[in-house]
């Protein structure tokens, strides 16, 4: 965990842990850049939700933050990207992967595939860090418990459900005590139960003050817990702000992002002249309560 200090660059505020300046990145196998002149700062102690159409550069951005770009994923870039005070080009090896935990969309491909229990899966990273056995056991059990898998320590990782498997991946990052968590569309391949499990775990982590960068195509479950929403399209930031203020912009309803139903209903009613408040509801509950309020306002007083 050495070297992961706060950024020294004067252009960054103390709470910005990642910053991109005119950052353009092209994968070795691609002819067009995936990120184009990106300028963006990500703040610590927040849940930043990154969305946008497929191929817009969301996952690539997540991979830069996670320390996978430019190595081991090959590619060429211009501009600068700094994460935790390190330029991603010149950062010492492992410094970023040691500080940033990652959870991918596929629940099984991100497992080591070399362990026969959930416990071993979590312990694997701690063994690589060379921790003493007692600490490995304590940390692994604690992490499994904190993601609600205390009963599953001896279960074979392949036999976990999708939701359990994603929680196991989160447990691996928690056991490593990584200060930053990058979640790359963690619920896109899950059934509704698994999705709910992961969403509520992320909510808990966010409430505990964990820095989370969450990439999601479908904003549905994440809006109400997001401190900030960034929309990436064709490798550029096209919108950036608090979800409630951002989603008042009608341009976002052109199919660029999957707008949750509650926001869509709010926008539709607004177009038809029925105002349900200045900012859109971020959950169905919020929508229902503003509809109720509207009903009460319109009820003729006897």
């Amino acid at each position: 965990m050495s070297g992961a200090g706060l950024p020294e660059s004067a252009s960054l505020t103390a709470s910005t842990f990642a910053s991109f300046e005119e950052f353009t990145f092209t994968y070795d196998t691609a002819s067009e850049p995936t990120l184009t002149g990106l300028t963006l700062g990500l703040r610590a102690d927040q849940l930043t939700l990154i969305s946008g159409p497929s191929g817009g550069g969301k996952s690539t951005l997540a991979r830069v933050v996670a320390g996978f770009i430019p190595r081991p994923l090959g590619g060429s870039f211009e501009g600068t990207a700094r994460v935790l005070g390190h330029d991603v080009e010149s950062a010492p090896p492992h410094v970023l992967t040691e500080s940033v935990g990652v959870v991918f969309d596929n629940p099984f491909d991100q497992l080591t595939a070399a362990t026969s229990t959930a416990f071993d899966e979590v312990a694997y990273a701690l063994e690589n860090e060379g921790l003493p056995p007692d600490e490995i056991v304590a940390r692994a059990l604690e992490a499994l418990e904190s993601v609600g898998l205390a009963e599953m320590t001896g279960r074979h990782p392949r036999r976990l459900s999708g939701g359990q498997s994603q929680r196991l991946a989160i447990a691996c990052a928690l056991a490593q005590r990584k200060p930053i968590l990058v979640l790359d569309d963690p619920t896109s391949q899950l059934d509704p139960t698994g999705r709910e499990e992961v969403v509520s775990l992320v909510r808990t982590l966010r409430d505990a003050g964990t820095t989370v960068v969450l990439v999601a195509q479908d904003l549905g479950h994440w809006l109400e817990m997001a401190d900030r929403l960034v929309i990436l399209d064709e490798g550029r930031v096209t919108a950036d702000g608090h979800p409630a203020t951002l989603l008042t912009d009608p341009r976002l309803f052109d199919g660029t992002i999957l707008v949750p139903r509650c926001v869509a209903v709010w926008a539709d009613l607004r177009r038809r002249g029925i105002a349900l408040g200045d900012t859109p509801p971020l959950t169905t509950d919020q929508l229902v309560s503003s509809v109720r309020n509207l009903g009460r306002e319109r009820e003729p007083t006897p």
């Binding site: 991979r63 996670a66 320390g67 996978f68 081991p72 994923l73 090896p93 492992h94 992967t97 040691e98 940033v100 935990g101 990652v102 991918f104 596929n106 491909d109 991100q110 497992l111 080591t112 595939a113 694997y124 990273a125 690589n128 860090e129 991946a169 691996c172 990052a173 490593q176």
Partner: peptide, 12 residues
Amino acid sequence: MRTLALESRGFS
């Protein structure tokens, strides 16, 4: 994906 996951878990 497994390569990245292993990197994240201190494989190297």
